[in-house]
Amino acid sequence: MDRFLDTFFNPVVMAKYAPDVIGGMGVTLTIAAAVIFAGIGLGLALACLRAYGLTILNFFIICYADIFRSLPPLVLILILYFGFPSIGIRLSGPMVLFVVLSLTLAAFAEEIFWAGFSSVEKGQWEAGIATGLGFTRTLAYVALPQAVRLAMPPLVNRVLAITKMTALGSAIGVAEILSTSTTAQSFSGSATPLTLSVIAYLVIFLPMVVFARWLERNSAWKSR
């Protein structure tokens, strides 16, 4: 028991490396927030564009969504970080992480929002168009709010899955939670920093999971 505590909960090691891991939390949170913002924004924009039903454009949107949903983000991260400098595109580690995760989240978000749009009754569109709103305003005021509402529970789950992947940054030296913890682990020779990373991830993601659960329970149409 002592050995277990000493390995995972060594107070000296904890005190020494906690500041590093807390710093890593800042990096994780910043990248996660940027990824959520950009990924959802781009995904929503693509789903809206797809609603216009332009064949050629939709072909490209669907290709993009399918490709980015198929590829493991780590592969893309390694290509962008180690491969792209050879063709003259040099991105920092955090930037690579941000770009890859945003594009991946956008691909999933586009499909989720699109499923939301597809579930909006045809009659809703007709009601908007028949009252002179035209396609774009019907999209914005009638279909979009309903699609977003339908998309919320699956979207939050997907956001969770993708933002956790900020841990992939440890493969390219981004000083996020996992990276700072593994560094601390090799310096200290103790597994305690990994415990710190567990705590750090729980602090960030547990509230999001609880929020997702709450959203799922409250996603039905209500009176107000």
Partner: peptide
């Protein structure tokens, strides 16, 4: 040209008042 549908097609995410004002505000 006002149109009334068999299935009503009110906007479920808006109050009755908002349903009636949406096109007045955004189209008219």
């Amino acid at each position: 040209v006002g149109m009334v549908f068999q299935g009503f097609h009110l906007y479920p995410h808006m109050s009755v008042l908002k349903n009636v004002t949406l096109a007045q505000r955004k189209a008219l």
